[in-house]
Amino acid sequence: MRAFEYSSPRTTEDAIRLLSAEGAVALAGGTDLLSLMKDGAAAPSRLVNLKAIPDLTGAHETDGGLHIGATTRLGPLGEHRVIRESFPAVAQAIAGVRSRQVLSMRTVGGDLLQRPRCWYFRAGFGLVPMHDGQSMAKTGDNRYHAIFGNAGDAVFVNPSSLAPPLIALGASATVLGPDGERTVAVEDLYRTPASSDESEFTLGAAEIVTGVTIPMRSSSNATYEIRNRKGFDWPLAAASVAVSDGGARVVLGHAAPTPWMSAAAAGALAGGISEASAEAAGDAAVADAAALSGNGYKIQLARVAVKRAALAAM
């Protein structure tokens, strides 16, 4: 790990100022960032710890819904009354993180902004690893890579546990930077980079996510994740479903470079959830999936994840 400067401000204003330095990176739970730094896949010249800022932690109900501060840890959040009673999709995604240590450390903002698990990226080849003009991931081992949004050279998958349920529930993120505060839909935090020089996030320089807000509308919602073992591991496929009077949303995780919203699957659930509509939603979700050379099995897993998330929400 390269040497770096460290700062632990008490206010968001100080945090933004400290993050404006070249090479500065925000530190939250550290469960992803420190490993990236040890692997040489990240080399910040300064870390700005956000966990000592009182305004950024904890969850409380507001007029707009349940506001969750960015440095709220996943473990306590999963036990929050409103999360358990109204947003089981979030509680189930948190329960999927089968490590008490990670639940004690990982934050909401850090989960949303964790970097992809793609082994080419982790080995230092970049998000869009290229060799002789060809995608290394497409020509190499891509068993865990994208089945949607993979027509270009970026074929990593978004690893966030919370993005699928938060997007399904219509949550927004508050973003603070040198130019002030803005609010964006959680799905708009993400984009597909055209090259390794670009970020997979839409955040500008020195911008941080300060929190997310889940609107308090009544919905049937659930998350279903599929792993190759019950223990602590990232899912091979994940889906979150939310169906309310306002319509349905279906979001797949670990499927594309961004959290993947399936309008076709949502359409299948618009009339309500039944055994038949859950089955139809699974089929619709993967109708336009495209396997790479080694990940065809993920299409069936994604189909089943959508179907079972819908049945769990019923």
Binding site: L27, S35, K38, K51, R100, M105
Partner: peptide, 27 residues
């Protein structure tokens, strides 16, 4: 592992189990 995966470095931080490899001493 030194990557927050195996748990051999588990310590309690204010009573919560954490991976000591993934916490900076300064924190």
């Amino acid at each position: 592992c030194d990557r927050g995966t195996c748990g051999a470095c588990t310590v309690l931080l204010n009573g919560d189990p954490v991976y000591a490899c993934s916490v900076l001493a300064i924190e």
